[in-house]
Design a binder for these strands. Structure first.
Length: 139
DNA sequence: GCCAACGTTGGC
DNA sequence: GCCAACGTTGGC
């Protein structure tokens, strides 16, 4: 199963907001970038992702799970834009900051570092495991 | 608040 | 189909 990373600015959509949606989760709307959309189309039910705060915070905050496959984004005026639904799984016991990620040799190839503008991106198993470890997170 | 990097648009 | 101009994102 693939791993992912979803970016959000905390004042636009916070991890707490997603947690408040409970098991039903919420539509990850507003993505207007083909690469990001294509990544969401590849997602399967039950796949996990990190929830990352961009701009303000700049840290991996929690774990999320895909709970609905890609479908037309209800906020889009054009059906080319699609999104998945995700739900919060758990907050990370310790947040992993962008600074840490950039300094860590095992994480310096993350898309987050290499292509910081991509808002929905893949994470490798090795990167996933390493960040979970840094975050003191046990699945 | 600035600006670099990237993506998109539109004229040719 | 190229590329200049423009808009947006996100780190600093």
């Amino acid at each position: 199963m693939a791993k992912w990373l979803f970016k959000s600015e905390p004042d636009v959509y916070s991890f707490e907001q997603l947690q408040a949606k409970g098991k039903a989760g919420d539509e990850w709307t507003g993505i207007r970038n083909y690469q990001a959309r294509n990544n969401m189309r590849l997602m399967k039910l039950g796949e996990l992702g990190f929830f990352y705060y961009s701009n303000v915070g700049k840290a991996v905050m929690g774990i999320v799970e895909v709970c609905k496959l890609a479908h037309v984004d209800s906020t889009a005026d054009n059906p080319t834009w699609q999104c998945v639904d995700i739900r919060a799984v758990a907050p990370l016991p310790r947040h992993v900051t962008l600074d840490e990620i950039k300094l860590d040799a095992k994480l310096k190839d993350m898309v987050l570092v290499v292509n910081s503008r991509l808002s929905v991106q893949p994470v490798t198993e090795a990167q996933w495991a390493h960040i979970c470890k840094l975050a003191n997170y046990k699945a």
